[in-house]
Design a binder for these strands. Sequence first.
RNA 1: GGUCCGGUAGUUCAAUUUGGUUAGAGCACCGCCCUGUCACGGCGGAAGUUGCGGGUUCGAGUCCCGUCCGGACCGCCA
Length: 448
Amino acid sequence: MERLGSQDLPTPAGAAELSAAPEGSRVTVHGAVQRIRRLSWGAFVVLRRHDGLVQCVLQADTDGGAMQRLQEESCVEMAGTIHRASMKDPSIMPRDTEIHVESVRILSEPASPPPVDLTKKILDLHIDTNLDLRPVSLRHPVERARLRIASALEADFRRYLSSRGFTSIRSPKICFAGAEGGANIFRVQYFDRTAFLAQSPQFYKQMAVAFYERVFETGPVFRAEPHQTSRHVNEYTSLDFEMGYISSFRDVMLMEAGLLRSMIETAGRECAYELELLGATLPSVPDSFPCVTLAEAHEIAGAASGRDYSGEPDLGPEEEKLVCEHSSREWGSEFVFVTHYPTSKRPFYTMDDPLTPGFTLSFDLLFRGLEITTGGQRIHDYDMQVAKMQSFGLDPAAFESYLAAHRTGLPPHGGLAIGLERLTARLLDVDNIRLTTMFPRDAKRLTP
RNA sequence: GGUCCGGUAGUUCAAUUUGGUUAGAGCACCGCCCUGUCACGGCGGAAGUUGCGGGUUCGAGUCCCGUCCGGACCGCCA
């Protein structure tokens, strides 16, 4: 019999620990060979590690000439001593420390050189080549840094809401029917029936409000729309929350303003290295966000462009940019809420505004020219929900399990969804959200 | 679904406008050199069915037709 416990599994030293280690102390590190600079006397070998790149120095005769056997993407373990040094290369972290190597153990070797040049400061690839070679291209420090930002944002989304009375839920992704109007839905074979991939956790969030009051979920959602743009993919990460006992849909917006402020400040703190590498500046998030109605947004965009958008039921991409520019310039906020979309443009569960007939208590959040959130107050009253379904031409009987929540009683509630890849892309000024997605799925791409 | 644009070495690009010798260059790769590099540097080498098929022509990467693949934008949405 053998017993296994986590005390037997050491955690690799981080960049900060290497930096803090005293000069001359012994250390063993492992990693992949990111690049080798051979000189006559030896070589600089940069190892890619979990949280940075460390420079290792080998003499020509170190460990029997081990440097001659090294190649890019070999996985190695190196033992040596800590020395202080000054690195000019921002991708190297720690930047004040290098390891003078005494012994090298090669753990694995690649079968062939990488198909793209991972040693350069930037990975200069067509997006299509980049995506085709994702298992390789994401090894580049700049490429992998983007997803680290996304990881930090998601982690703080969960942390922030958990600390404010929200419960984490996991709703099914294989569903009996679709939730959202508009968006097409993927069909999947489910034994002898047809099922659907979830477009949103919407129904389940609302049901869960009845038992947890406040819930959130981060996970994939699926949209079967054949769009072909830099801001759409067919599977993306939705950061969802739903909160009960709201006094107004503005409570949801207030929660989001604090949430985003925390997420962005936390990412800025935890990912300073990645942000420097990416040359990105995170926005200062104001205490409060400007908020305009759709009609006001049309006026702002119209004044800027000279066109007349009034009466349009939604904001077009051009308008989103114009409104964001206006908000940034006039109101000092790169975030701007747009409210009161028409009933016809919002899903059937959206609460209508009793004061503005034909319009809803719903909002989008625009950031740097892109819609990153949709949210609003939901209908909690059973009769009102059934009536609205009927006015949308939907059969309430088809939504029996959903309506059971309303029939049994729901508090006033509302919520929202943030597109994680979109938020990350705009924060980093990345043009295409495929680059903030590890393995994107779009109409043309099902691999890797 | 609509409108534009593109496809040349592993990769990023040039040569296409005006058809003309053996399709060039950077990086990666291979060899040699370089005592601290950091997008290291120097010298040399190898690397191509110009997406695919057909046509025009003495001659096609270049012009024409078809086809395949991809990109951008719009609609729609996060």
